[in-house]
Simulated assay, not measured.
Amino acid sequence: MSRPDAAIALATDTPIPRDADGPVFAEPWQAMVFALVVQLQERGVFTADEWAQALGAEIREAVAKGGCRDGSDYYERWCEALEHLLIAKGLTSHDGIDGLAASWARAAEATPHGKPILIENDPLTS
């Protein structure tokens, strides 16, 4: 499946916030996580069925815990599903994800205002 076909299938087969033109992203990071999931599926890291199961589980858990029922937290569920799926496949760990998040936070703190945040800006990695 080509990239446009995979993205269209993913956008069609999931309850992504959308308008008449397709998926709607309120923030750039939402489009990035969408694209990342498409890429990982195309590369065979996980199947569409595995993704649907992981995302569905995250949405059900969030709703059960009183999460947003209006879909405003939809892409947060994508991030959670992606993290848990990659951990389940042994491609990362909770510690690995937490460490990378901490590194990005330090990089953001060390980056001058108006400059792009780069992981290389983490003062603990230099």
Results as ranks from 00 to 15, higher is better:
Glu120Cys: 14
Ala26Cys: 05
Arg69Gly: 11
Ala105Val: 04
Pro28Phe: 11
Thr92Lys: 09
Pro4Phe: 15
Lys115Asn: 14
Ala101Val: 09
Arg43Thr: 05
Glu76Thr: 11
Ala64Pro: 03
Ala62Asp: 13
Leu40Pro: 00
Ala64Leu: 11
Ala6Phe: 03
Leu85Pro: 02
Lys115Asp: 14
Thr92Cys: 10
Gly56Glu: 06
Ser72Pro: 01
Ile97Val: 11
Pro123Ala: 11
Ala26Val: 04
Asp21His: 00
Ala20His: 09
Leu40Arg: 14
Val33Lys: 01
Met32Phe: 11
Leu85Trp: 01
Val33Ser: 02
Gly99Met: 03
Pro123Ile: 11
Ile119Val: 15
Asp95Gln: 08
Pro123Ser: 08
Leu118Gly: 12
Leu85Cys: 02
Ala81Tyr: 01
Ala102His: 07
Ala81Val: 03
Pro116Phe: 12
Ile59Gln: 01
Gly90Phe: 03
Pro23Leu: 04
Gly99Thr: 03
Val24Gly: 00
Pro15Glu: 13
His94Ala: 08
Arg18Lys: 12
Asp98Gly: 10
Ala54Trp: 06
Pro15Asn: 12
Ser2His: 14
Lys89Ser: 02
Glu61Trp: 03
His113Asp: 14
Gly66Pro: 05
Pro4Ile: 15
Trp104His: 04
His84Phe: 06
Gly114Asp: 14
Pro28Gln: 15
Ile87Tyr: 01
Ala52Thr: 12
Ala48His: 08
Val38Leu: 12
Leu86Trp: 10
Trp29Lys: 06
Glu109Leu: 10
Ile117Asn: 02
Gln41Ser: 06
Glu61Thr: 10
Gly66Thr: 09
Pro28Asp: 13
Glu61Ala: 14
Trp51Met: 05
Asp70Asn: 09
Gly96Cys: 09
Arg43Ser: 07
Lys65Arg: 14
Gly56Ile: 09
Lys89Leu: 09
Ala102Ile: 02
Gly99Gln: 02
Ala20Phe: 00
Thr92Leu: 07
Gln53Leu: 06
Ser93Pro: 08
Ala31Ser: 15
Lys65Phe: 09
Ala105Thr: 07
Tyr74Phe: 12
Ile117Glu: 04
Ile87His: 06
Asp95Trp: 00
Glu109Trp: 08
Ile117Lys: 03
